[in-house]
Amino acid sequence: MYLTLLNDFIVEAKSRTYVGGGSPRPSCRPGSHDIGYERGEWRYLDSYFGGTDFCGQETVWLNGEPIWAMNYFGHIIEPGLIDGSRAGAVIKAALSSMYSEKKRFLGGMEFDHAFGFYIDNSEGDCAHFRGMEMIIVEERRAYELDYRGGLIRL
C-alpha cells in the first residue's frame, strides 16, 4: 500500500514538473536548476545541473522526512543527430504518455516520435531500481540517461 501511494505521488509530481512545464523554483544549491511539487504532506524536488549534458537528483519527502530519491546523468552522444531541444521534446512526449497511460515512472517503455525512437528499460520497483533511457536516431544511439534510486532508510 505504501509503495503504491509513493509511486502514485511520484508519477503525479513528475507529470506536473519537468514533463508538465512546471515553474522553476529558486536554486537550492549554487548553479542548480530546481523544480518542485507539493500535495498535502508530500513534497517532491528535482534539482539538476547542466543543460544538454546534465546530472541531477529527485527527492520525495513525506511529513518533512526524506523517504525516496533517484539520481541521474544524461547526455547527447551524437550531436549531429539530435540536439537538446529535440531530445527534450522526445523525452517529454514519451514520459507524458507513460505517466498518463501506464500510471508508472519506471521503464519498459518504447515510444516513436518524429525526432527519434525512445526506449526506457529498468530493473526493480519503486523501492529499489536502476535503468536507462535512450533515443535512437537513424539506427544510432543519439542520447542516453542512466538512473537509479529507491527508498531512503533513516
Rank of each mutant, 00 (worst) to 15 (best):
T4Y: 12
T4W: 08
L5G: 03
L5M: 10
L6D: 10
D8Q: 15
I10S: 06
E12M: 13
K14H: 11
R16F: 03
V19I: 15
V19E: 08
V19N: 02
G20K: 09
G20Q: 10
G21Y: 10
S23L: 14
P24D: 08
G31C: 03
G31N: 11
S32V: 01
S32N: 04
D34N: 12
I35Y: 02
G36L: 07
G36S: 14
Y37W: 11
E38P: 00
R39H: 14
E41C: 01
E41R: 13
W42P: 03
R43N: 08
Y44N: 05
L45F: 02
L45D: 01
Y48W: 15
F49S: 00
G50K: 08
G51V: 06
T52C: 10
T52I: 07
D53F: 01
D53N: 12
C55N: 08
G56S: 06
Q57P: 00
Q57C: 08
T59K: 09
V60Q: 03
G64F: 06
G64I: 05
E65N: 06
E65V: 14
M70S: 13
Y72D: 00
F73N: 05
F73Q: 08
G74Y: 04
H75K: 14
H75C: 09
H75W: 06
I76P: 02
I76F: 09
I76H: 04
P79G: 06
P79T: 07
P79A: 08
L81I: 03
I82V: 12
G84S: 07
R86T: 01
R86V: 00
A89M: 08
K92C: 08
L95W: 10
S97I: 00
Y99W: 10
K103V: 09
F105G: 04
G107H: 13
G107F: 14
G108C: 10
A114F: 02
F115K: 01
D120P: 06
N121A: 14
S122R: 13
G124K: 12
G124F: 11
D125I: 11
C126K: 06
A127S: 15
H128A: 15
F129W: 11
F129D: 09
R130H: 13
V137G: 01
E138C: 05
E139I: 02
E139P: 00
E139W: 08
R140T: 06
R141T: 15
A142G: 07
A142E: 05
A142P: 07
L145Y: 00
Y147C: 06
Y147R: 07
R148V: 00
G149M: 11
G150C: 09
